[in-house]
Computed example of a mutant assay.
Amino acid sequence: MRNIAALFSMLMPGFGQIYNGQFTKGVFFLIVEHFDNILGKISQAIHLDFNGLHQQAVEAANFEYLLFYPGFYAYCIWDAWYYVKPNADKSKTAIPFVIGGFLGEIGAILANRLPDKLSPIYCVKMVQ
């Protein structure tokens, strides 16, 4: 049960909470995810990066909203997984959100300093 809830949240933040029966929380997380994705232009940046346009992906992303996403994503997965745990202290679920947010922000801040040759698509092309 716990792993299935976490996998649903990996698919889309909020799905794991809905799977666990936390409908209101799940719908709220879905709405937050969609607004953050649209305002941060996350899907557009991913599409550009997967097509080898790393610099354009960095320029397209809105880092004011993008910095929030990694921590939020990690929190949704953790919350869905941890909620099902028997005898769990539900007040500690904010710990991964803080850690994920911190690490995500560091990665997002340093993303525009990466040379094009460090793009994942470029590395795949080099292997072929």
Rank of each mutant, 00 (worst) to 15 (best):
M1H: 11
R2S: 10
N3Q: 07
A6T: 02
A6E: 02
F8A: 01
S9V: 03
L11F: 13
L11R: 10
M12K: 10
G14P: 05
I18M: 15
N20M: 04
Q22K: 15
T24I: 07
K25W: 06
G26E: 04
I31K: 07
I31T: 12
I31Q: 07
V32I: 09
E33V: 00
H34S: 09
H34C: 07
F35C: 06
N37H: 09
K41D: 12
K41W: 08
I42D: 04
Q44N: 14
Q44A: 15
A45F: 08
I46L: 13
G52L: 08
G52V: 04
L53Y: 11
L53W: 06
Q55Y: 02
Q56T: 03
V58F: 01
E59L: 12
N62Q: 14
F68M: 00
F72N: 00
Y75P: 01
Y75T: 06
A80F: 03
Y82I: 04
Y82G: 04
P86M: 07
D89I: 02
P96D: 11
F97H: 10
F97A: 15
F97L: 15
I99N: 08
I99P: 02
I99D: 06
G100Y: 00
F102W: 11
G104R: 03
E105Y: 05
G107K: 14
G107M: 15
A108D: 07
I109F: 14
I109D: 11
A111D: 12
A111W: 11
N112C: 03
R113Y: 13
P115V: 01
D116S: 05
P120H: 10
V127L: 07
V127W: 04
Q128T: 05
